[in-house]
Design a protein around this nucleic acid. Structure first.
Lengths: 228, 228
DNA sequence: GTCTATAGGAAGATAGAC
DNA sequence: GTCTATCTTCCTATAGAC
């Protein structure tokens, strides 16, 4: 646990890497660590180790742990935003005919009905990188922090506006869409996929919530356990 | 910020109180503090101050911070469980005729449809003590902690079984019910009620999600800011 | 039942070498 | 661009008095 451990082989890489690239590597590591343990629970040293560099270097590049968290959060929000926008643009360009054909007709056929379903799929696809969704979840429960809180609120509201204004969901549909997303986030954050085989109740709830995306999630969960 | 502050008037009460009662007071304080800052972000000293006693005494009574968190979590889960069971029992005893009369007929009239709506109201009522719901949320994102995580999973699954088996909701209805709950938790944890007046988007989303319960929530939020 | 004092151990950040 | 060493602060938990 101490910072002074392992003089072993693959420790601090010391490979010189351009700052921009290094920053992205650290942000990936930070996303995983913050996702797992939250802002207060994570240490800059854990991030450093995950990125295979020294703790002071992390601080050097980002200034403070707070800034690091904010940047990781923005990155996660950005990925989600980007993912939704891509779906919307592709749909409006008529590029998703084959996927549209697979949608449940009972759920409606207006543009907003189609987009609702397509975005739900896109959201669930993001679960593959379980860090993103858990990072968001951790951001949402850090509302009390003076600099993180306001940015988390802004990011969340921006997502809401995106699905309401760009995708055109009416208020109730947008709310339900968000609600399903928050449930998925919760199940992932609770690590329910990790007890999928042992807890019949977990099995049922996961299957009912994630449907066709369940194998994706279970794989991600198992991959995580092999590493973690 | 330091622990050594204020020798002022209303400091450590030193009033002798029976242990059982003191424990409950501390659990209330702990719920508020953990709800606000999470397991890792909260300190036993903050809990102590909220309970007007010394930090070592908190530890003395609960052993470890971890145990304190677990007990606060169990208490919050228990309150929710109790609240739902009370609704179910009252409904089955025919004691809720007047409330049932107010329900939206479009949402169905089977027992499970009624209970779904009545429990939603009960859930939203719990928001009045905003600590409970935020405490639950914080518990759900602490899934990685070796002793807290498993208990949080069990608690969540027990709630799911309650609404499915006792209230009789089918799997999809139970999922949607949970999803709405998780959205409410998220909005509260994000402190969206605190920007209700400033952010039009927040206003819309809160109104759409909380409906008639919104005044309750706004009051709780304002009361909290006066104290906090 | 409750406190003061404090040991012991992180963790974030800085200084400065290579 | 990256590291080692370290300062400082803060926090959990213990000891022991009243």
């Amino acid at each position: 646990m101490s910072r002074v451990v392992k003089k072993s082989a693959e420790s601090p890489a010391a490979t010189r890497i351009p700052a921009a690239e290094r920053r992205e590597l650290i942000l990936q590591a930070a996303t995983a660590v913050f996702a797992e343990r939250g802002y207060a629970g994570a240490t800059t040293d854990q991030v450093a180790r995950a990125a295979n560099i020294s703790q002071p270097y992390v601080v050097r590049l980002f200034g403070t742990k707070e800034t690091l968290f904010v940047e990781a959060m923005d990155r996660a929000l950005g990925k989600l935003d980007e993912s939704f926008r891509r779906v919307i643009a592709a749909y409006d360009a008529g590029a998703l005919a084959d996927q549209v054909a697979l949608l449940d007709p009972a759920l409606g056929s207006r543009r907003q009905d189609r987009l609702r379903q397509l975005m739900a799929v896109a959201y669930a696809d993001l679960i593959e990188d379980r860090g993103i969704l858990m990072m968001l979840m951790q951001s949402f429960v850090t509302g009390h922090e003076p600099v993180i809180g306001p940015r988390a609120r802004d990011g969340f509201l921006a997502l809401y506006r995106l699905i309401r204004d760009e995708a055109g969901l009416d208020a109730d549909a947008a709310r339900d869409f968000l609600a399903q997303g928050m449930l998925m986030n919760t199940l992932i954050s609770l690590r329910l996929p990790e007890v999928y085989d042992e807890e019949p109740t977990a099995t049922e709830l996961l299957e009912c919530t994630l449907r066709t995306k369940l194998p994706l999630v279970l794989n991600a969960s198992r991959a995580h356990r092999r590493v973690g």
